[in-house]
Design a protein around this nucleic acid. Structure first.
Lengths: 323, 323
DNA sequence: CCGCACTATCAGGCAATTTAATACGGTGTG
DNA sequence: CACACCGTATTAAATTGCCTGATAGTGCGG
């Protein structure tokens, strides 16, 4: 059994889609399909229920996923532990990223960087926002790409860019034919959003509130993808990161509607461990992403943190980092 | 990374030899060498110190071995858990065996069986004696091949065959030129044996004692292999299973010396879980090994155990099983 | 220094994996 | 119900990687 196949399976389970898993893993959809097929064959079990979209895992699939995730995580950790026993520092930069951010920005960045630094490999690890924080904390990755970066005692955060959030609806929705609508038209409308725990949800609620609008949240999900799907199904409107609907707007299944009062962005940022310095290559790559010297941000933030700690609570700094 | 490669690495670590690992895994020495080579390359670390024989693990190698063993074990368990979710019973018989027994008897048995049952695969898992017991207990394997089989509350034991133990010495040893020696000549001689905890050691001590001989144990190891190596180095004589020195006697580096008073055998046996019945194929294969119907032994032992439990302690039954 | 046993390396063959192209199937639409 | 669209399965060809068999190199003991 190929460890890579197990990772592939994790991607498929995460994304509930073979083709998206293929993009995340950087192979073709065909390869994913066959790999998973062989995997199921060798296990003499069906792991994925292909009879409905989005795909779901079978009972066996769920059991397997749990085990495989743990095993893959454990192996990566072991690999790291052993590699650092070796003599020379790794020439590989590993970046953790949430799917939405990683998939949008990593491919070009990786390619651009590897062109200029043929001796350095860039690896991307995907995971939930929470998982990325964990990856950075436990030093599984050099740094992480997340939205709403949050500095903590051990983690530093560098604001990167603000990705616009768009008000989107299905092409069937009444709003679809309009290019701009007044905020008041949103009053009481059905909206699909993130679950209450998700930071993005809180930001959206905040934005709506300050626009003086009350909407009716009709569905809640823990990921962009499901939201987009529900919007496509015309179950309501939603506010999502632009990158998350790039494909869908291109093929016309959803529409972006402008609304002067709803001008949201979600801040993307780089998080890193304050202790334990990054290797040269990682800093170079971070600088490429940022479009400026990463080192400067790391230092200033660290100092800011130090100053903060003396003052007590660091809440206001956190805000300043986020915006 | 290929899970198979990780297993290979475990074999190499167990056997402290590429060529022996190759035999255990059923591939060529070249394949092992290359696999481990690539593994080390991909880890950018040296796992095995090739500068001395027998091979030793580097620091990184030891760390890696620990992790890999756990991961391989975990994956196998997961595989099982998921496969049993599937619809049909496995057509694979998995046998756990200590190296010395498995390597001697499994290859032919496997071949013979698969010839008659082309639809059944036989898989052999190697491990220490203790590990084999664990494999059987946790249902990782259908049954186990061990020496000194020991029935327990959960495990049944079927005596199989008695492998002769041989008194062997280096070709340089004074005894090498003699075909038979008197037991008295062993008095006070340097002997290499197993560590005190090993059952085989206790059996050997017992045998020597009843022959009225006291020897001087000059070295102790936890495995046959190291003992044979020490004997080859002429550090003393030893009493080891015939199969363990087959190669060495063939190439003349060690000699088997007959001694009328030292007539030892080590009992080999099959151990199995009393609860949870074996699949048809496993029983067929067991029967092939035993040369008689396995089912009969399993039943009678179970009943014997039941009778025993009523009487209290089962020590004397254990003996009857062993001999 | 030699012989022996073992490991490394190399070229060739074969099987597994990947890709690109295409067929097939599920889902929503008119 | 037919159609369009999106996503998955299938196929053949190309590629990669693994294994074998032969051979060269190395550690170890004499």
């Amino acid at each position: 059994m190929q460890l890579r196949t197990l990772e592939l399976f994790c991607h498929v389970a995460d994304q509930r889609s073979f083709s998206k898993a293929a993009v995340a893993a950087g192979v073709t959809q065909s390869a994913v399909s066959q790999s998973i097929g062989h995997l199921e064959e060798s296990l003499e079990t069906t792991l994925i229920d292909r009879s409905k979209r989005p795909l779901t895992l079978t009972e066996a699939g769920r059991v397997y996923l749990n085990g495989v995730r743990e095993i893959v995580r454990q192996y990566k950790e072991l690999e790291d532990r052993v590699q650092h026993h070796g003599r020379r520092l790794s020439d590989t930069v590993t970046v953790g990223a949430v799917y939405s951010v990683g998939l949008s920005y990593m491919p070009e960045a990786k390619q651009a960087f590897e062109q200029n630094h043929p001796d350095v490999r860039i690896r991307t690890e995907f995971g939930s926002s929470q998982r990325v924080v964990e990856m950075v904390t436990s030093n599984e990755v050099d740094f992480g790409l997340v939205s709403f970066p949050r500095a903590t005692k051990t983690l530093g955060a560098i604001p990167w860019q603000s990705e616009p959030m768009r008000l989107v609806c299905s092409s069937e929705h009444p709003f679809a034919s309009e290019t701009e609508i007044a905020a008041s038209r949103l009053e009481g409308i059905d909206m699909i959003s993130f679950e209450k725990g998700v930071v993005l949800r809180q930001a959206i609620d905040q934005c709506l509130k300050s626009a003086g609008i009350t909407v009716s949240i009709s569905m809640e999900f823990d990921n962009c993808d499901s939201i987009v799907r529900a919007i496509q199904a015309n179950r309501g409107i939603g506010i999502v990161p632009e990158a998350a609907v790039r494909r869908e707007t291109a093929n016309g299944t959803v529409r972006v509607v402008a609304c002067r009062e709803i001008q949201m962005t979600r801040p993307l940022g780089i998080i890193f461990r304050k202790r334990g310095k990054l290797c040269r290559a990682a800093i170079e790559f971070g600088s490429l992403l940022l479009g400026r010297e990463m080192e400067h941000d790391m230092l200033s933030k660290t100092e800011a943190a130090k100053a903060d700690r003396q003052k007590g609570e660091s809440k206001d700094r956190a805000v300043s980092v986020l915006i």
